[in-house]
Amino acid sequence: MNERWTRKDLLGLRELSIDEINFILETADAFKQVGAREIKKVPALRGKTLVNFFVEPSTRTRTSFELAAFRLSADVINITASGSSLTKGETLKDTAKNLEALHADILVLRHSSAGAPQFLAERLKSSVINAGDGAHEHPTQGLLDAYTIREKRGKIDNLHVVIIGDILFSRVARSNIFCLTKLGARVTLVGPSTLVPRDFEKLGVTVSHKIDNVLPDADVVNLLRIQHERQRKEYFPGTGEYTRLFGLTKARAKMLKPDCLVMHPGPINRGVEIDSEVADGSRSVILDQVTNGLAVRMAVLYLCGGIAT
């Protein structure tokens, strides 16, 4: 289709070249314009079947992919873990092979195991799109974050992006790190030492445990949810202390530059990692991220879906 895109799968952002990332973002520009029209649907994937295969629960990402597929005129089915044969003991490979036997063209996979999308991509002719695998990658989230920064600030190169929160268990953080460092941003990770271990410095980023030293110099702050329901108690003493040390409170937000963007992949825990006033404030682009996610996912489905044929 295009010499700038040759992949049938989108598994992660670590393996993408700068040009491939830029090409997705440029393609998303075109689809964003489509979303503003009265007729929002294009026939790009007409006759293709997309399976949203969500082995781990998600509403936001699944809905976004579903809507993106509808806008591209694809037929969509949704399969969740509780409704799949995986709960009856069928292996992931067998379930996926069965979906392929039904001529599914694109498989969008959300899975709790890192590497599950690559596992399927190596075994299927269908396109496999990673919608989040364990703590590994969430490439469309990384792309929509980059898209939003680029849209609001006009560039990514040389910006200082601060990612705050539970980095260790976060696929969003990893996809952001891989994408933004490729595009020339300076990335600082902030959070408790248990959730932001020093090993991350080997990925080409700075680690800090003092949010007040970092905020005044930030061009973008991306807040990650503290996933307290998933975490064992030993990682941090509790959300109260977390908010005290790392929450983007109203008071701390005053330290931010006027044009600093405040981002969050959602769902937000108001009052924990971010105060309500900041989440809803003038710097917040949290809802723009959601809108842009649709355009970015349309671009990814369009590009990968075109290769699979």
Partner: peptide
Amino acid sequence: NEGYWSTLLGLP
């Protein structure tokens, strides 16, 4: 092993 590769790949 806990180290660079577990960090990169998000494996426990």
